[in-house]
Design a protein around this nucleic acid. Structure first.
Lengths: 132, 132
DNA sequence: CCCATTCTACGACGCTGGTCGTAGGATGTC
DNA sequence: GACATCCTACGACCAGCGTCGTAGAATGGG
């Protein structure tokens, strides 16, 4: 039992996490620049959120340089599982099928995407029934 | 163009909406009772949220009786589409496949559910390519 | 050495969501 | 008619989130 359950990131925190997942360990400046293309928020806002994320255990920081270097502790797959699971429970009665109906209804998927979903289902079914 | 876009319900609002979807038009008392099995919140809290939902246009109320009767305006399918679409965009780069991976990973689906998703894909593919 | 720049820390503010308490009007019962 | 009960309206409160401004320490260029 070494796994701690990392708290759910807020919307702004998720955006920063996504940058860290993409870039790897980064300074506040780097994260803020990466984000400023889509968002126009102040530098200290980014800093403040990062500090809170450190308290929450979502990220870890290396303070050996003057510009602290932040690194994601929350893993992408785990965070996504958490978010999907929560919506599943709160809005879809824990029915993945119902969630997919809504998702595919909201964003019209390309035939390629549909094929990919089928492939993923194959993988899952291949794995589940005869336990490995 | 008669469809207005109803605002996104908050978590508490979604719970009340779900009761209304299940029960149909109901009084505050009825909604509160229905909810009190799982939640222990005050009567006036339910009332207040309902009032705010009225302002937001999520519900409509009939004031002809002393006990006002509330009715859902936001439709279930549309609301679910909205919620799934938002998560899809914010956390999954608009990729339904990635969302499904996370969802199925969070809640181990039964073979029946997987089959149901396949059926769903069949429906969609049957509908899209040759436009009916 | 001094000044401009860059960084962190910290407090403030506004907003929203969820919670409740209380006031006061309507209703029902004896 | 009087009283207890149920209803709505409304304001208060608190916590969390996102935003920013400013202070003050570290750094680096002339």
């Amino acid at each position: 039992m070494e796994k701690k359950s990392p708290p759910k990131p807020t919307e702004a925190e998720l955006e920063l996490l996504q940058v860290l997942w993409r870039r790897g360990p980064s300074t506040v400046r780097e994260i803020h620049e990466a984000l400023s293309v889509s968002k126009s928020t102040g530098y200290t806002t980014t800093l403040k959120i990062l500090q809170k994320m450190t308290d929450k255990g979502l990220v870890r920081r290396d303070e050996s340089n003057r510009s602290h270097v932040y690194e994601a502790l929350a893993q992408a797959a785990q965070t996504e599982r958490q978010l999907a699971g929560e919506l599943l429970r709160k809005a879809f009665g824990d029915s993945p099928a119902r969630l997919m109906v809504a998702a595919l209804d909201s964003k019209k998927a390309t035939p390629q995407e549909l094929a990919e979903i089928r492939r993923l289902l194959d993988d899952i079914e291949a794995k589940t029934p005869m336990k490995q």
